[in-house]
Nucleic acid binder design. Structure first.
Length: 397
DNA sequence: TCTGGGGTCCTAGGACCC
DNA sequence: TCTGGGGTCCTAGGACCC
């Protein structure tokens, strides 16, 4: 019995770093991390070679967004602070983030997939789900391989992505999104893993619970405290116990996930719900002493969100702010307007009212402005692309 | 030597309305 | 003095993801 659906999860391998290696092929095989600000651009020397910054002695608040595989071998990973990474891998090359370029490669790899299989769900800059169920040949068996048809399709996708971008990706193909997301990690980089529900006990149950997309650090720690560390152990728990521990909704979802059950469709179109801009300061700012700087930053953030809304053709009715204090505590305030807007001055004024509702005793490390409850702006042209591409500023594994 | 920026979804209490 | 139930909107916080 072939599975009812064939869903692929395609994940670009070390995406930002791999794009940079296309530009700087001499870094091939070396530990490289992407992150931080503009300050560490490579310098072209008179003899034509380039001089790269290394992590050694890095000072600042940045984090690693992507690390090459040789860098990961040195114990540095996405999300790690650059100063901590510098202690572990001082010799690693440090490159600044170049979103323009990553977005360009993102469009290219998605177009390459769409040429062959059009039912695509965008999951950010470097990964997608693809519904292969109705692709010609997907259900066909090939000699000695009952799933040879869908395997051949996945190989075609990988080849087309490489032809269009020069980059490798990893694909998992299974009956649903949950399992495909896990399977795409199995054989990285340049991997291809095909699983059916028959593989659940053998391939999925031995894995740690944290491999389940949607089961984060909090739920993972709570399960660990209950003595549950593997997906198999999670699958042994009665549904009642999980519901009692995690609530009706999340508990039932945990139970299904552990049993490989996931009926979510591949969603080919979505509308944005909110847009925001935020910034972490180089040093923590004081509400009174640094008032001029804070005011100017606040206005800039409001203006940037307004420009983002206008460029993409949206207006929003809920204006909000976000502050993070020196102790990393985060607060938000928002308010709803009578009419949706994308006007910078209106957003700035409403955000200012929100700010008045916050106790500004502690020093501030982050400030953000958000517009939610979005609608398409009246008279805005239809979106150019079928896929809504979120302006994801980063990708963590 | 702490921890970026941009998102989505869920929960929960209170207001307000029928 | 006491006693409803349901629905929606608003706001704040938090978990989680890329």
């Amino acid at each position: 019995m072939p599975p009812r659906r064939w869903i692929a999860h395609l994940d670009m391998d070390a995406f930002y770093a791999s794009v940079e290696l296309l530009r700087y092929p001499e870094l091939q095989g070396r530990p490289v991390v992407i992150g931080g600000g503009r300050r560490h651009q490579p310098v072209l020397l008179p003899d034509g070679t380039r001089r790269f910054a290394t992590l050694d002695g890095y000072a600042g608040r940045g984090v690693i967004t992507t690390a090459t595989y040789p860098a990961r071998d040195l114990g540095v990973f996405s999300g790690m602070g650059l100063m901590k990474a510098a202690l572990r891998a001082p010799q690693a090359v440090l490159l600044p983030v170049d979103f323009e370029q990553y977005r360009d490669y993102s469009r290219r790899f998605k177009a390459a997939v769409a040429e062959l299989a059009p039912v695509i769900e965008d999951r950010g800059i470097d990964e997608i789900y693809i519904d292969l169920t109705d692709q010609p040949g997907a259900q066909e068996a090939v000699a000695h391989d009952p799933h040879g048809g869908v395997r051949a399709l996945a190989i075609d996708l990988k080849n087309n992505v490489r032809r269009a971008t020069g980059l490798s990706c990893s694909i998992g193909v299974t009956p649903n999104k949950l399992l495909s997301k896990i399977a795409s990690e199995f054989d990285k980089p340049d991997g291809l893993t095909l699983l059916t529900l028959d593989d659940l006990a053998g391939r999925i149950w031995p894995l740690p619970v944290r491999c389940i997309n949607g089961l984060g650090p909090k739920a993972g720690a709570k399960l660990a405290a209950l003595g549950i560390t593997s997906v198999g152990e999670l699958a042994q728990q009665p549904s009642d116990l999980l519901v009692q521990q995690f609530g009706r909704s999340y508990g039932a979802w945990l139970f299904d996930a552990a049993h490989g059950i996931d009926e979510r469709p591949v969603v080919t179109h979505s509308e944005p719900v909110s847009m925001s801009r935020e910034t972490t300061f180089e040093r923590d700012l004081h509400a009174q002493r640094d008032k001029p700087a804070l005011t100017a930053l606040f206005t800039r953030l409001a203006t940037q969100v307004a420009e983002d809304l206008q460029r993409k053709g949206y207006v929003g009715r809920t204006i909000g702010i976000k502050l993070r204090f020196e102790d990393f505590k985060t607060v938000t305030r928002d308010m709803s307007l009578d009419l949706p807007t994308s006007d910078a001055a209106t957003i700035r004024q409403a955000a200012g009212l929100c700010l008045k509702r916050v106790d500004l005793g502690r020093r501030i490390r982050l400030l953000g402005v958000r517009v939610g409850a979005l609608q398409r702006a009246p008279g805005a042209t239809a979106p150019a692309r079928r896929l809504h591409e979120p302006d994801t500023l980063d990708t963590l594994p």
